[in-house]
Design a protein around this nucleic acid. Sequence first.
DNA 1: TTGACATAGTTAGCTAGCTAACTATAATCT
DNA 2: AGATTATAGTTAGCTAGCTAACTATGTCAA
Lengths: 171, 171
Amino acid sequence: MLQLRNLPDKEVLQKFAQRYPQADISGIAAFLHLLRLATDLSNALDLCLSRHGLLQGRWWVLVLLMREDSLTLTPSVLAEKAGVTRATMTGLIDGLERDGLVERLMDKRDRRSISVRLTPAGQAKLDEVMPDYYSRLRRCMAGLDEEDRERLHQMLDRINLGIGAFSDPEG
Amino acid sequence: MLQLRNLPDKEVLQKFAQRYPQADISGIAAFLHLLRLATDLSNALDLCLSRHGLLQGRWWVLVLLMREDSLTLTPSVLAEKAGVTRATMTGLIDGLERDGLVERLMDKRDRRSISVRLTPAGQAKLDEVMPDYYSRLRRCMAGLDEEDRERLHQMLDRINLGIGAFSDPEG
DNA sequence: TTGACATAGTTAGCTAGCTAACTATAATCT
DNA sequence: AGATTATAGTTAGCTAGCTAACTATGTCAA
């Protein structure tokens, strides 16, 4: 995501703002700080999951299945919920099936469709991973109290409102 | 980064917290919200850059070179500052050189080493991209005033202090 | 009822990251 | 000086994403 390690300091930002007067220095600093931390958090999460032989993509599939009472979803729905393409989901399911964590079941009503079900081994894997993930995450977030967390949500929502500025084709 | 679109709502979190009592519900919600927004911002930035034929990796190389008075850095230093491996940097420089935005220059003192320099065409590309990026970013962040931004920095720093919880091999 | 379109899943081939191994050169330590 | 070790850059091959194209099946309307 944001690979850049060498974030611009005030001096660099001012030099750039001189050439490009559109620059909003404190906005840039906040934006980059947010991306930098989120990237580090995502990498830290991957590190934690990889100790259990998983990465985010495959792990989220297991979690999404566990959310269902039937422990079952179709690949298309999984893809949509997981935010990846159906093609990517095919690969994730392949890997999970190979490891015995999920199984593919034919749908008798619609023969185009299949169901993906969490196996007992998949549930056991989650029972191993989730307590580790949750207890690390609890420690990670311990620096923010409930009020901070509420304020953080509000600020993130307000940035989210502005995100369209990047996609607007007008410029 | 965080592909997942279907973030857990309160109900799902409580169901999971019942099985895994380590769960810190509001911490999980804040963590996922942060990753979700940052991923969307990063994708939005890529979309903006791709209109100019760039993506983050190549764009940051140009920006890092422009920060230097000499417009020049070595691949190793670029890799370190950009937060990618030297192998990845080789590929980024290849692409930028092919497009004429940077050039490779031999170092006469150390024949293992080369210099990468921003060309006039590279500078022209930045002069095209940066005003667009900066004005979009300004609009994106317009929902936060200076005080919000300061508070956001503080909260991000406090989360950053806890990030080691994920890498601690003890659990 | 059959022709056109839509949907579910897969396959093939692309990209930007990565690690590990390699080449060439420089530095260091007997 | 010669052997060892370190450093700069590249190459090769891996992964998890992507898009586009393909197969099979279902739906719907003339």
